[in-house]
Amino acid sequence: MTGFGVIGAGAWGTALASTLADNGPVTLWAREAEVVAAINSARENPLFLPGIALPAGITATTDLGDVAACDIILIVVPAQHLRAVLASAAIPAATPLVLCAKGIEAGSHKLMVEVAADIVSNPIAILSGPSFAAEVASGLPCAVTLACADAALGERLVAAMARPTLRLYHSDDVVGAEIGGAVKNVLAIACGVVAGACLGLNARAALIARGFAEMTRFGVARGARAETLAGLSGLGDLVLTCSSENSRNFRLGVGLGQGRPLADLLAGPAVAEGAATAPVLAEAARAAGVDMPICAAVAALLAGAPVRDTIGALLARPLKAE
């Protein structure tokens, strides 16, 4: 039986651990001692996934060494912390790593697979797609992409991780899966701004469509396939996160659209990845010569630009063919 390690006990890490526990024992690493204690004693993660009963097959720990011995390890930490966590984890080089963070590293503009390659020589896969943690942990059906350049490894990981309610589709387009997951977080903030500013559903639909065009332009420029971005890890995840307040990034945008202070919106243990990704994405797009006005507008809002002026500047852009 496969033993799974999950590094990161936020909502998504805990949900994955809960699902994988049906396939084999799971060792779940958390930074917070109180989270470890609650999972091991009360079978619940009240800080990140309250109200969800966790199976007995999960053992929580604050010791990364306990995870290193597992057969397959999922890394479910925020994108900007991936480098430091991998550097300290001491995972055997033969152990497959499944990266579950969705973002682009600040400073280097590197995708998560590129960050991992700087630190370790392990086989790498990417897990990405439309997946609210609470629904997955509750056993509701979900379909996601598992991207791996090594087709044989990808098939082995899919077979080990899949559940009747967690359907995995294998892809070899690692770049496409990464970029879809990173860009959709930024676009979800934009859609939240539209909702918070009461601009209507027509505006949200237009933003999703034009945002998807930005995602595709940037992805193709970075070597992704357009069909990957039209799949679960791109368009599928975009539609989900741009349509519900269950998305942390969408909720952040709603608050910005309502004029609430950014510091207040970012307070709390949960991380809205798009807040860190937006300025990095805007820099990377400019460096690559890719036009991404919506993502640039989100970066401007996060830097303190007025909502009304930023929206007005977007609407005043020159008219052109679609």
Rank of each mutant, 00 (worst) to 15 (best):
S41C: 07
V254A: 09
L187Y: 01
A213Y: 04
A203N: 11
A203D: 00
A205M: 00
A230Q: 12
M215R: 09
A209L: 03
R217Y: 04
F48R: 08
P50L: 02
E178Y: 01
W12Q: 01
A134I: 12
G181C: 05
L28I: 04
I189E: 05
I52R: 02
L111H: 12
A296P: 07
A205L: 01
V113S: 15
L314Y: 07
L315D: 10
K184F: 01
P164S: 13
L302Q: 01
E214G: 08
A195N: 08
I126K: 01
E178A: 14
G13Y: 02
I124C: 01
A116G: 03
A213G: 12
L229G: 04
L281Y: 01
L281R: 04
R83S: 05
P318A: 14
A177H: 03
A287G: 03
A53G: 12
R260D: 10
A56L: 09
I58S: 08
V77S: 00
L99F: 05
E105Q: 00
S247G: 08
K102W: 10
H81V: 11
T14F: 05
V239F: 06
D71E: 12
A87G: 15
S131G: 11
R163I: 09
N40T: 04
G304T: 04
G176L: 10
L302A: 00
S244T: 12
S108M: 07
A316M: 13
V77Q: 09
R31H: 13
L74I: 13
L16Q: 05
A224E: 04
T61F: 07
G192Y: 04
L82F: 07
V77A: 01
Y169V: 14
C198Q: 15
A69D: 14
S131F: 07
G3A: 13
G24K: 07
A53D: 14
C142E: 13
I119W: 04
V115G: 07
F4P: 11
G274F: 07
A205H: 09
P141V: 05
I104D: 09
C70G: 05
L207Q: 10
L49T: 06
E283V: 05
P96E: 11
A203S: 15
C148E: 03
D118K: 01
A221P: 00
G304H: 06
A263Y: 02
A152V: 14
A197L: 04
L86A: 05
E34A: 14
E178D: 05
R204N: 13
N40H: 02
I58C: 04
G255D: 10
A94R: 14
T61W: 06
E34W: 09
H81W: 12
S233D: 05
L240S: 06
T228Y: 05
F250G: 02
T145D: 06
R210A: 02
V280D: 08
S244P: 04
R163A: 15
A285Q: 02
L199Q: 13
A37K: 11
A56D: 14
M161E: 05
A159P: 11
R31P: 00
A11I: 00
P46Y: 03
P123I: 11
A190T: 01
N246Q: 15
L49D: 09
G65C: 02
V115P: 13
G200H: 07
L201R: 13
V36D: 00
G51K: 08
R251Q: 07
R83K: 14
V239H: 08
V67S: 07
